[in-house]
Simulated scan of single mutants.
Amino acid sequence: MFSIYDAFKRKIADEEISTPLAAILALTELIENSDAGTMFELVKALNDGAEALKKQASNTISVNAGCELFIAFVTLFPHDSDNFTDLKKELIRQGQNYAAEALTYRKKIAELAFGFIKDGSVILTHSYSRVVMQTLLLAHKRKRFSVFVTEARPRGLGIKTAEALTAAGVPSTVILDSAVAYVMDKVDFVLVGSEAVVESGGLVNAVGSNQIAIIARAANKPFYALAESYKFHRLFPLSQYDLPSHNSKILSFPSILHANSSSMNTSSPSSPSQNESNYPTGGQPERVPLRITQEQISKNNPDVDYTRSLLLASTAPEMTVLILRRRPDLISLVFSDVGSLTPEGVSQYLVGMFAG
């Protein structure tokens, strides 16, 4: 029996295949294994498969970006096939061809961003990004520069970036996430990858990207994002808590009752401190060990955050419309395979992309 998640895992095992592309290829396999006899049935099967994939995959935002793009393509695909079987074959061929072509997008982006890297540049990058790595390695062939890399907790992927750059001969050093403001005066510009670029022109990327963008703007340093066009996503978050990846466990406060506190005095069950409604579980308070581990910290923190394209000036909770005073963009440019775009340009491109 076909499992879309198993198909997704096979594709994502390839280091060159990003999450949205793996989702597109998994949906392509779903068409191949589907017994749908009409377009309505096929689109329903694709939507059901996308929902199943989002429930099982850890990176829901990137998965959703790929699924949304492919389903929109299938829905809008112009065809003159004689029968539905031929149409399915054509959709499968188009999906596979798109994925193959999409693997060239990083090279296009690297060549586009190449001109912004000057001899002697000092660059700050965050976490690990394949398109950022390709850009830096291409520039290293003809230019001299050095790179500060954030440690990028909780996953610590900045170390992977620094090791790869050092092995290639690029001077690089790992800095603490908390040292970004300290090092910013030494930096010429910031260069980051992305999990998704959303409808507002904002960026979803490894947690810490937002604070780096804010510090870069305060220091008047450009903040550049690199993103393949298949990561453009029809999502319009207004805050961190609007991201699909956010849940109640992130940054939660467990009830404080230490494991060794059985000998401590406790109030009667009817007292407010012991009332079941005071505890998130609705039962007994959670026993929190005295020793806090890195694993516990990671589980209680987000993997990604949202960087607004504009600084938010003021909001009025009683109003239905957010009041935005025009302020400088946090994101200077988004380099993509479709060109170098301002945040406003991303919005315009997304409208055209999903309008057929």
Results as ranks from 00 to 15, higher is better:
residue 5 Y to M: 04
residue 7 A to R: 00
residue 12 I to N: 01
residue 13 A to P: 01
residue 16 E to S: 12
residue 27 L to S: 02
residue 29 E to G: 13
residue 30 L to Y: 00
residue 31 I to D: 02
residue 33 N to V: 03
residue 34 S to C: 07
residue 34 S to V: 04
residue 34 S to K: 06
residue 36 A to D: 05
residue 37 G to W: 02
residue 39 M to R: 11
residue 39 M to S: 09
residue 43 V to C: 04
residue 55 K to R: 14
residue 57 A to H: 01
residue 60 T to W: 00
residue 65 A to K: 02
residue 69 L to C: 02
residue 74 V to T: 07
residue 77 F to H: 13
residue 79 H to S: 15
residue 84 F to Q: 07
residue 86 D to P: 01
residue 87 L to K: 08
residue 88 K to D: 06
residue 94 Q to W: 09
residue 98 Y to R: 01
residue 102 A to K: 01
residue 105 Y to V: 01
residue 107 K to Y: 09
residue 111 E to G: 09
residue 116 F to S: 14
residue 122 V to K: 10
residue 131 V to F: 03
residue 134 Q to N: 12
residue 138 L to A: 12
residue 153 R to G: 05
residue 155 R to P: 02
residue 157 L to G: 00
residue 161 T to N: 02
residue 163 E to I: 10
residue 164 A to D: 14
residue 170 V to C: 04
residue 175 I to F: 01
residue 181 A to H: 07
residue 183 V to I: 13
residue 184 M to H: 09
residue 189 F to R: 03
residue 190 V to R: 04
residue 199 E to S: 14
residue 211 Q to I: 13
residue 215 I to F: 11
residue 217 R to P: 00
residue 222 P to C: 09
residue 222 P to L: 09
residue 230 Y to C: 07
residue 233 H to G: 03
residue 233 H to R: 07
residue 233 H to I: 04
residue 236 F to S: 14
residue 238 L to I: 07
residue 243 L to Y: 09
residue 244 P to T: 06
residue 247 N to D: 15
residue 249 K to P: 05
residue 249 K to G: 09
residue 255 S to A: 15
residue 265 N to T: 11
residue 279 Y to V: 07
residue 279 Y to E: 06
residue 281 T to I: 08
residue 287 R to V: 09
residue 289 P to N: 12
residue 293 T to A: 03
residue 294 Q to W: 11
residue 297 I to K: 12
residue 302 P to F: 04
residue 306 Y to K: 00
residue 311 L to Q: 13
residue 313 A to M: 10
residue 316 A to E: 15
residue 317 P to W: 05
residue 336 S to A: 07
residue 338 V to E: 08
residue 349 Y to S: 06
residue 350 L to Y: 07
residue 351 V to M: 14
residue 353 M to K: 14
residue 354 F to P: 09
